[in-house]
Design a protein around this nucleic acid. Structure first.
Lengths: 205, 205, 205, 205
DNA sequence: GATGAATGAGGGTTCATTCAT
DNA sequence: CATGAATGAACCCTCATTCAT
């Protein structure tokens, strides 16, 4: 019952935050949308930002669980295997973003509307994501599968790519097949943009 | 004289928005910091969001000018030349972000705190950036220098990489030499992460 | 409970509007005078003008109810009966104005201080009053009791007389007996100023 | 030159006050409409209300001059003469209101939007008007031309009639011939509404 | 636990007025 | 005299949060 109300509040809030933005959404709107009384809100959440944070936490927990957590670097032996893994991760990311489009929108577009304290909380999620990616990169580096580029920098670049890949998959081209998107992302991430046929000296035969 | 006040207001606002966030910064703070009266603010800016937008516009105008505008795709003939150009662009981006650290912070961290109207304005900058990148990619594709990946997707991935590269250069590793960062970004962007020594079938001799 | 607060707010506002005028009265004054919090005001009224309008509406509803509504023209047969009715109406008007001196003051003196929208609303009351009077005049004209003067013009002249009669009864001569005032108004309205003894050709034998 | 500016300011203000109301008209609007600088306003008028008062004073001076001042009670001897005079006064009033429609509108509709001090000033005009009418009535009473009704009360009733007659002539029926309106007003004022044919005991043969 | 009326601090914006040029 | 940029006091209204029922 109690959990039910919290869930209704979160669903209502996710919808409204997405439509009107965090700042423009009033607690009164949320409770109206959820069909409970104004005061009830504060029995379930400390305040408005903390409801937002709960949504964000949910998003990140789910995302990590369905991506990196399911695809440990350890078992990989060849570049081919890595490529397969990476492609699956990209596909999982894109599917996750589309499945939780509201939450994705919130994370990508509303996180900065929060007051400093909660904003830091959200940023910590991104940092943890970058850390996890950095660690993953280090492992595959030690396996000799990827180049010796500085992992923290690359991790942050990947974070940016992931953000915008989700943005693209959800807002720009919501109908593009996720496998196809995942394939392109993987190709770009692992082998870069340069045409192998071009006269370059980087990837010699 | 008049322009001087506008400049003082923008400088004061950039500082305060960066420190406390857009929402938490009151117009009263800005004018106090700039040393003018409250009413004077509204002689120079329509309202608080529009001052923010002025800062953002400034940022993007400068960024485009110092990067893509100076490095047209047309003249390129070889992958080596492209790589050199791309590296210079990355370096310019990183230098720009560091030179205008306050504005960069605002764009990366505060843009979504705006009311809907102004937020749309900011988003249009990102879209225009993506468009410009997509066009650039198309041109180098037609020159046969880069692979036939879908340009709009890649453009958005690059936008994400740029955002996080600036983030990294300004916040995470403010002392890392920009040339070095630019080199790594270029390597990643053009040739990908995969170790050429690894057993892969993607870049055959 | 809720109605009680609205009543307190209206009473406080009527007093302050009367003393200091609509514009000079701040919402803060009203709530202080009513003993509630600033925000409470907006639970009961949309804004300051709409509280004023509520007072005005109350005034007109009561005035109509105690005057024209109680004295239909239909039953009248002789000029004597009409005169008696008219005198009772004048007496009712004067008593009403004195009984609700604050509201009367507001209607007579503050109505034009409102913003356009609400001012129109008030003006509509006057127009409805004129309409009602015009209809009354038409009925008694058809009964042959009054002259064939253009009813809408006369109705507006009567509106002016009523306004100033209330003004006189409330501000100029608050102690004059209302029956006496009503008698004079009736005499003036029905038989005019001209001395019958004077040599005139208007009311021939 | 100086007077010219004052005149332009008054004309501009009369127009704007009429259209948007006193409160909603900003000094900035007036000077823009008059084609002078903001500061120039204060070389010619103490402040916004005092410009309004100047317009009102002008209105009343002209009105008195063209009505009562030209029609002294002294020379009258018969009711017929009085009726003729009264009708001319009514006609003059109506013509004046129509000729100075903007000023009339201001006096009838905006006077109460003023701050207390200036509002009192305007009210004094009405009181002086009532006084003048009362004196006129006394004189014609002493000449035996009009009934012995209390002059101050009647004076105020006449003020109300005049206000609403102007209102009618300017707003309700701007095309009705003024002589005709003046005739009806005179008939009503001097001989009342009652049909002489009706069975009444007030005006016996 | 649930309610929702009451709270009251907070801040963006307006605009009459001034005064250095 | 004229200018118009600068001033800053004033005020309405919002809305997150509380608490008596």
């Amino acid at each position: 019952m109690t959990d039910d109300i919290a869930r209704k509040l979160k669903a209502a809030a996710a919808e409204l935050f997405t439509q009107q933005g965090f700042t423009a959404t009033r607690v009164a709107d949320i409770v109206a949308n959820a069909g409970v009384a104004q005061g009830t809100f504060y029995l379930h959440f400390e305040n408005k930002p903390s409801l937002f944070v709960a949504l964000i936490d949910e998003f990140f927990a789910g995302l990590i669980e369905e991506t990196l957590a399911r695809h440990p670097a350890k078992r990989l032996q060849t570049g081919e295997q890595l490529a397969a893994e990476v492609e699956e991760i990209w596909a999982a990311i894109i599917r996750y973003g589309r499945k939780h489009a509201l939450l994705t929108t919130l994370v990508l577009r509303e996180a900065h509307a929060l007051p400093p304290e909660q904003r830091d909380h959200v940023n910590r999620h991104f940092e943890q994501g970058a850390d996890a990616l950095a660690q993953y990169l280090e492992e595959v580096q030690q396996l000799g599968l990827v180049k010796n580029l500085p992992v923290r920098l690359i991790a942050w670049l990947l974070v940016g790519m992931i953000e915008r890949a989700m943005h693209y998959a959800v807002f720009v081209a919501p109908n593009a097949p996720s496998v196809s998107l995942a394939g392109h992302c993987t190709e770009f991430e692992l082998r870069g943009l340069l045409n192998c046929g071009a006269a370059v000296s980087g990837c010699p035969s």
